[in-house]
Nucleic acid binder design. Structure first.
Lengths: 246, 246
DNA sequence: TGTACATCAGTGAACGCGCGTTCACTGATGTAC
DNA sequence: TGTACATCAGTGAACGCGCGTTCACTGATGTAC
């Protein structure tokens, strides 16, 4: 009945099977940690292990597909959260919204998070296809800071720190060069102190999630969400997303 | 000839063998990532795999020994760095010294770092013997902040942040309770904002190391040491380790 | 100092398991005439 | 609409490998008399 040429039965079943394999594989990652076994996945699906080779040419290709899906899922969550923030000039609010969206995704899919932010998987090297998706969440956060900086925020934070040279001043030459390259790549147009502060905040954000999800804080916090929220606010303040100018 | 009763040949050889097994096991972690195989270790030592059972009752016990050694090594490095800081009132200097010592250890022994701060090992649950050693580096850093706070530093940082409620004020009740428990446990005697800032700095410090060592920053920075140093200085400033009071 | 016995490190074979991948095959779905 | 052929999902057996762990054993080191 549909006017447009419908995909064949085979094509539809194939797409469903591919998705199902990935779903079951993720369940296995959940139970077995980072060990992913094609045979175990096939067993769970009531198939013979060699049948999976109709869908993925090797175990590593399946892993790569899972990793790309994970990055894309996280990236999408971040992008949607920022797009849903109506007050575009409320940069701190946008930072909080995106930050919370990232944590919500990670808490909902801890094994996918471990896949992309945990320790490297033995014997597996991520192919280049993964770097684009990997940057999506970073780009969202960087854009918030870039727009805030363009609106006159983010500057002259930290200037009161005396004694020790302020981190913002007197950068090591190699560090300055790195920061230039990074702000160029992200097209943020921010100065070195702002770029550095953004990267520090990014480090803290993912550090906080890794601590929580990898169980390094077991029995330390009872309310991780509240602690994470405090940290996001601290980052927003540190990044100078709040004040009108300085 | 020695006056004191010398350990028997057997006892000496046994101690050497135990150390050698751990050394070879670490080498394997380096090559194979987180997969540790008793048989591979035995092979490398020119022994039969069952011989290792004279030294460790199971693979997991060997892993536990490696993990405890790693925590102790990192803890010792941190303690020595702080002890070597002559100017006890230069809290920022002590923070930098300990921070750099932690990174130096991690860079020198990336696989031991991954063992204790990477994603959990499939099928392995760390026994309670590991929690004491795990706290050693944290305790060293906490003591610096505690002494700085006692000397009148660390207060009133961040007070200028407007708009959004300052992270320091109006803590969620659950978070306040958590912070009380943590400062009690670490015996820092610090107020909530200081405790929270310390934990945030801790998160950033280990987050930075994980980013660097797990390769999430490949081709992003050329000089990791300079970037890490900047971050340590930023933390010292954020923690208020610098100013005389406020 | 010398002998008899106990301790223990290391061997080699085996058990039972799981893994990724290959290959020739059957039988169902899709396509061209 | 019906038949002939091509495509492709899934099977089942096999290859060759590695793993942790147990067990009866040999032979060297240590100890008690």
């Amino acid at each position: 009945m549909p006017e447009t040429k419908a995909p064949t039965l085979r094509a539809r079943v194939r797409a469903e099977m591919t998705a199902e394999i990935k779903r079951v594989a993720l369940e296995h990652l959940a139970v077995d940690g980072s060990a992913l076994s094609l045979r175990a996945v096939a067993r769970d699906m009531g198939m013979v292990s060699s049948a999976l080779y109709r869908y993925f040419p090797s175990r590593d290709e399946l892993l790569t597909a899972l990793i790309i899906d994970a990055y894309d899922g996280l990236g999408l969550a971040a992008e949607e959260a920022d797009a849903a923030s109506a007050a575009r000039e409320d940069f701190a609010g946008r930072w909080l919204a995106v930050g919370h969206a990232i944590r919500a995704w990670a808490v909902a899919k801890p094994h996918e998070y471990a896949l992309i932010y945990g320790s490297p998987i033995p014997g597996y090297a991520a192919p280049v296809d993964t770097v684009g998706p990997a940057n999506r969440p970073v780009v969202v956060l960087a854009r918030i800071v870039a727009e805030a900086a363009a609106a006159g925020r983010c500057s002259a934070v930290d200037a009161s720190a005396g004694g020790l040279p302020s981190p913002a001043d007197s950068l090591a030459p190699a560090l300055a060069a790195d920061l230039t390259q990074i702000s160029d790549f992200l097209a943020t147009g921010t100065d070195h102190p702002t770029t550095a502060r953004f990267l520090a905040a990014l480090t803290q954000l993912f550090g906080a999630l890794s601590f929580e999800l990898f169980g390094r804080l077991n029995n330390v916090f009872s309310d991780y969400a509240a602690w994470y929220d405090w940290q996001l606010r601290s980052m927003a303040s540190y990044l100078g997303l709040l004040e009108e100018s300085a």
